[in-house]
């Protein structure tokens, strides 16, 4: 198995590691960079618990190899807050009870972040389609939708 040095800029920091060609991006993020907020919930690219932003776009990190992220910019849930200031999406999830067990939450937040960056004022229907790649077993999504609306409103006001 060939080995490759992968360097990424993740949450604003440059990080490198030597990995096998077959190493999945999610395992690189979790096992090598020890950013464990990104989760694995399935083995078929169905659940979205592993969603991160790659060059600003929401992707499922279980379905990319680490080497495909070489030289690129990544953002994970750990990079959402600015210092102690929570991202409006994080605030929205807490304010509107958009999470219970918390396992899908990081992926859900990153999908929603990807959605709001390309569509800052989504309708309810657009939010539901925007997070349709992310499964949640606890909330029934109703409060997640409210949380994303809260963030959209707050960001529109410059918050």
């Amino acid at each position: 198995m060939s080995s490759h040095k992968v360097t990424v800029t993740i949450n604003g920091q440059k990080r490198s590691a030597e990995v096998e060609a077959r190493m999945l991006l999610v395992h690189f993020i979790r096992d090598y960079l020890r950013l464990t907020g990104t989760h694995v919930g399935c083995d078929t690219t169905s659940c979205g618990a592993c969603t991160v932003l790659l060059e600003g776009q929401a992707v499922k990190s279980c379905t990319l190899f680490a080497v495909q992220a070489e030289g690129k910019t990544l953002q994970t849930v750990e990079g959402l807050a600015q210092g102690t200031a929570l991202h409006p999406l994080q605030e929205g999830f807490k304010e509107h009870h958009g999470l219970q067990c918390g396992f899908c939450t990081p992926g859900m937040l990153m999908s929603a972040a990807g959605l709001l960056s390309r569509n800052p004022r989504p309708s309810e229907e657009e939010i539901r389609w925007g997070i349709a790649g992310n499964l949640c077993r606890c909330t029934g999504y109703q409060n997640i939708v409210k949380a994303v609306q809260f963030a959209s409103d707050k960001m529109a006001k410059g918050g």
Binding site: R34, G37, H39, T76, V77, F93, H97, L99
Partner: peptide
């Protein structure tokens, strides 16, 4: 009451079994 648990979960600071190395 807003949940105490949420602060860690929304920041990727929960600790699930797989997070133990």
């Amino acid at each position: 009451v807003k949940r105490k648990e949420d602060s860690r979960f929304i920041q990727g600071k929960g600790r699930y079994v797989e997070d133990f190395y």
